[in-house]
Deep mutational scan, measured.
Amino acid sequence: ENVVSAPMPGKVLRVLVRVGDRVRVGQGLLVLEAMKMENEIPSPRDGVVKRILVKEGEIDDTGQPLIELG
C-alpha cells in the first residue's frame, strides 16, 4: 500500500511528517479531527514520504488519499 487514505471524513489539523522523511510502521503521519476528536493516522508500513497530498486545515472525505509512501 503506497497511498495512505483517510479512514473517516474530517479536518486535517497537523501534518507530522515532511517529504523525504523515513517513517516506520505505526508512526503518526498526520492528525485528523473528526467528531470533535483528534485521531492520529499511522503509517501502514516502513517507507519514505514521497508526497503529501493534503494541507493543514483542509477537509477530507473517507478514502481520500492523504500521503504517498515510497
Rank of each mutant, 00 (worst) to 15 (best):
E1A: 13
E1V: 14
E1N: 13
E1H: 14
N2Y: 15
N2C: 15
N2R: 09
N2G: 10
V3C: 13
V3R: 06
V3T: 11
V3L: 12
V3Y: 14
V4I: 12
V4M: 04
V4A: 04
V4Y: 04
V4K: 04
S5N: 11
S5V: 15
S5F: 15
S5W: 14
S5M: 13
A6D: 03
A6W: 08
A6K: 04
A6G: 04
A6M: 08
A6I: 05
A6N: 06
P7L: 07
P7H: 08
M8H: 13
M8V: 08
M8N: 08
M8Y: 15
P9K: 13
P9S: 12
P9C: 12
P9H: 11
P9Q: 11
P9L: 09
P9M: 11
G10V: 06
G10L: 05
G10R: 04
K11F: 08
K11G: 02
K11P: 01
K11T: 10
V12A: 00
V12R: 00
V12L: 06
V12K: 00
L13I: 13
L13Q: 05
L13P: 00
L13M: 08
R14M: 07
R14Q: 07
R14H: 07
R14P: 02
V15I: 15
V15P: 02
V15M: 08
V15C: 07
L16I: 06
L16K: 04
L16F: 05
L16P: 03
L16M: 09
V17Y: 00
V17E: 01
V17Q: 01
V17F: 00
V17T: 02
V17N: 00
V17I: 06
V17W: 00
R18N: 11
R18T: 10
V19N: 04
V19T: 07
V19W: 03
V19H: 04
V19I: 10
V19S: 03
V19P: 08
G20W: 05
G20Q: 03
G20V: 02
D21E: 13
D21I: 08
D21H: 05
D21R: 02
D21T: 06
R22P: 09
R22Q: 11
R22M: 11
R22I: 13
R22L: 12
R22T: 11
V23F: 03
V23K: 01
V23E: 02
V23G: 02
V23N: 01
R24W: 10
R24H: 12
R24D: 05
R24A: 09
R24V: 13
V25P: 08
V25W: 08
V25D: 05
V25Q: 13
V25Y: 11
V25F: 12
G26S: 03
G26P: 01
G26Y: 06
Q27M: 07
Q27P: 00
Q27L: 04
G28F: 10
G28M: 11
G28S: 12
G28Y: 08
G28W: 08
G28T: 15
G28Q: 06
G28I: 15
G28V: 15
G28L: 13
L29D: 01
L29Y: 02
L29G: 00
L30F: 08
L30C: 04
L30I: 13
L30N: 00
V31F: 03
V31T: 05
V31R: 03
V31M: 05
V31Q: 02
L32G: 00
L32T: 03
E33M: 12
E33S: 09
E33W: 15
E33L: 15
E33T: 07
A34K: 06
A34D: 08
A34I: 14
A34S: 13
M35A: 12
M35F: 13
M35H: 13
M35P: 04
M35Y: 13
M35Q: 12
K36Y: 12
K36H: 14
K36P: 04
K36S: 14
K36G: 15
M37Y: 08
M37L: 11
M37R: 12
M37A: 10
M37C: 11
E38Y: 09
E38G: 05
E38S: 09
E38L: 12
N39Y: 15
N39M: 15
N39D: 04
N39S: 11
E40S: 09
E40L: 15
E40R: 09
E40M: 14
E40F: 12
I41V: 10
I41F: 03
I41A: 01
I41W: 03
I41N: 02
I41Q: 01
P42N: 10
P42M: 11
S43G: 02
S43F: 02
S43V: 01
S43K: 01
S43N: 02
S43H: 01
P44M: 05
P44K: 05
P44T: 07
P44A: 03
R45A: 10
R45S: 09
R45I: 15
R45K: 11
D46W: 07
D46P: 07
D46L: 04
D46G: 08
D46T: 07
G47H: 02
G47I: 02
G47M: 03
G47D: 03
G47K: 00
G47A: 09
G47F: 02
V48G: 01
V48W: 14
V48C: 12
V48F: 13
V48H: 08
V48K: 05
V49A: 01
V49I: 12
K50G: 05
K50T: 13
K50L: 14
R51D: 06
R51A: 12
R51L: 09
R51Y: 09
R51E: 07
R51C: 12
I52N: 00
I52S: 01
I52T: 01
I52P: 02
I52D: 02
I52Q: 02
L53W: 13
L53Y: 13
L53Q: 03
L53E: 03
L53A: 03
L53C: 11
L53F: 15
V54Q: 03
K55F: 12
K55E: 12
K55A: 12
K55S: 12
K55H: 12
K55V: 13
K55Y: 12
K55D: 09
E56I: 14
E56D: 08
E56N: 08
E56Y: 09
E56T: 09
E56L: 12
E56H: 09
E56P: 11
G57R: 04
G57I: 06
G57N: 07
G57H: 05
E58G: 06
E58M: 12
E58H: 10
E58P: 10
I59W: 15
I59C: 13
I59S: 09
I59K: 07
I59A: 08
I59M: 12
D60Y: 15
D60S: 15
D60K: 15
D60M: 15
D61R: 14
D61I: 13
D61L: 13
D61P: 08
D61C: 13
D61N: 12
D61F: 15
T62L: 13
T62E: 13
G63K: 06
G63S: 08
G63W: 07
G63P: 04
G63Q: 07
Q64L: 08
Q64K: 11
P65M: 08
P65V: 10
L66S: 02
L66F: 05
L66E: 00
L66N: 02
L66I: 07
L66A: 01
L66V: 05
I67F: 08
I67H: 02
I67E: 00
E68R: 05
E68N: 04
E68I: 15
E68M: 11
E68K: 05
E68Y: 11
L69R: 01
L69Y: 05
L69M: 06
G70V: 14
G70Q: 13
G70Y: 15
G70L: 13
G70N: 11
G70A: 14
G70F: 15
G70I: 13
